[in-house]
Amino acid sequence: MTVHPQTPQFFLTSPSPCPYLSGQFERKVFTHLIGERAPDLLDLLTQGGFRRSQNIAYRPACERCRACVSVRILVDEFVPTRSMRRVAQRNQDLVGRIGDPEPSSEQYSLFRRYLDSRHAFGGMSEMSVLDYAMMVEDSQVDTRLVQYRRKGPDSRFSERSDGALIASALTDVMGDGLSMVYSFFEPDEAERSLGTFMILDHIERARKMGLPYLYLGYWVRDSRKMAYKIRFQPQDHLGPKGWERYVPDEAEQG
């Protein structure tokens, strides 16, 4: 059999404990994102529910579970709730700057504090500074790093007076939207709700770029870690019939 060198090949991982649902095991199907066709391939695969990690595109392929659901926010129809507007107000003293995916020791220090506080026993807990650099740099698609810092006296005109790094988001720019690959923030600033703030900021960035969607990865109904994603309405979920508008119940809307 002849295989064209640009044709993606897919592989299946062995079962491993699920990080979201106790007692379940996960498997993933994945392929490599390499070469000049990588951006187009990522666009296509994202439509099918894949996510990116470095130069790998993957999606769940569990044998007995279909709990992971791909989620995207409809940017043009999104209206923030009252609590979201309060989050935006609390973070008016921050400035977000988008740039090339270039790692730094300051980023890694924040990343390390975030992991130690929020995900001390997770799969990323042992990541070294080199691992972090690979996560940021190793991409053959259009990837950006958004860094959020305290505003300085001259931040309106120059980034030279920007203050300490408070949060950061690794983000892919695709044909129809932005995809938040990974984000982290200062764990001692819990009152800011920085996770929510970064999503709100990315919605506005996508709107200004004329992109209709913000991709948030997977939502798992019974996972408390994923509960925050359902608050950003309206949104589409990927199901057997393709992407469809999701109607949340009353508890989820609250």
Results as ranks from 00 to 15, higher is better:
82 R>Y: 09
96 G>A: 13
57 A>Q: 05
51 R>E: 11
88 A>P: 08
54 Q>Y: 06
88 A>W: 11
95 V>A: 14
104 S>R: 05
86 R>D: 11
55 N>K: 13
89 Q>Y: 09
90 R>V: 06
75 V>E: 05
68 C>A: 10
62 C>H: 07
74 L>N: 15
95 V>R: 13
80 P>Q: 07
54 Q>R: 14
89 Q>H: 14
94 L>K: 10
94 L>T: 03
62 C>E: 09
60 P>I: 00
50 F>R: 02
85 R>P: 05
93 D>M: 05
91 N>P: 01
86 R>P: 04
91 N>M: 06
73 I>Q: 00
97 R>D: 02
51 R>D: 06
75 V>P: 08
49 G>V: 01
103 P>M: 10
70 S>M: 09
97 R>L: 11
83 S>N: 15
67 A>E: 11
79 V>P: 00
93 D>Y: 07
84 M>S: 09
95 V>Y: 02
53 S>D: 08
91 N>I: 05
79 V>C: 01
71 V>M: 13
59 R>S: 08
70 S>I: 01
67 A>C: 10
68 C>D: 07
77 E>S: 15
55 N>G: 10
75 V>D: 03
95 V>T: 11
96 G>H: 04
62 C>S: 11
87 V>E: 03
88 A>D: 07
51 R>T: 06
67 A>K: 08
64 R>T: 14
76 D>W: 03
63 E>K: 10
98 I>M: 10
99 G>Y: 00
52 R>H: 03
64 R>K: 12
83 S>G: 12
63 E>T: 08
49 G>M: 04
81 T>W: 04
53 S>L: 08
104 S>K: 01
62 C>R: 06
84 M>L: 14
56 I>Y: 12
100 D>C: 02
57 A>K: 02
50 F>C: 03
54 Q>A: 03
61 A>Q: 11
58 Y>V: 07
73 I>E: 06
64 R>A: 12
80 P>M: 09
67 A>Q: 09
55 N>F: 04
96 G>W: 05
95 V>S: 13
55 N>M: 14
